[in-house]
Amino acid sequence: MLAIALPSGRMLDDCVKLFESANIYFPKEILESRKLSGKSGNLNFLVCKPKDVPIYVEYGTADIGIVGKDVLLEENPQVYELYDLGIGRCKIVVAIPNEANPEELFSKDDIIRVATKYPKITREFFNKRGISIEILNLSGSIELAPVTGIADVIVDIVSTGRTLRENNLKVWEEIAISSARLIANRASLHIKAEEIKSVLRRLKEVRQPL
């Protein structure tokens, strides 16, 4: 039996499609009810918040998991990152108001306030650039922050860029590219190598080309 943790929300649909194309049956009751786990063959699917996927995997409650690289960069969990599944592609960017001039913005005397749900990635990026910032740790709808003036700029993920545009923001810098990764628990990878390898092989076969 292999336990696999999947992220709830946007990426879950992509994961389900991926499993279906790999001929791995995904228990429908999870999609149709409020159940958060279900078995299919020798797989036990667990659905949790994206940020929690690496936690379940780190403890070995889930042997493997699927999670965005953005979460891995932020949380830095002790897990093996085995494969880039190619789904859930997005960019982690610094976005600023459309009318802002970055040179002026980042050289002003006041400390820049950055709204984000990625405090660690944000801190590292601005430290490297030598720009002093203050982090405003929000949990969603980050684009609202510059509109309301609670922050000057944001660090967030963008896929189509639509939300940025509609909230009068533009990309200043790309910090990293993210996509869904297959991760594995350290002990499970050693003890259940064959089972994990077989799931990995099937997912590799159906992976969409970049």
Binding site: T61, R186, A187, S188
Partner: peptide, 11 residues
């Protein structure tokens, strides 16, 4: 080397 016990996710 590392040693694991089944059911425990860490060495």
């Amino acid at each position: 080397f590392e040693g694991y016990i089944e059911g425990l996710g860490l060495p």
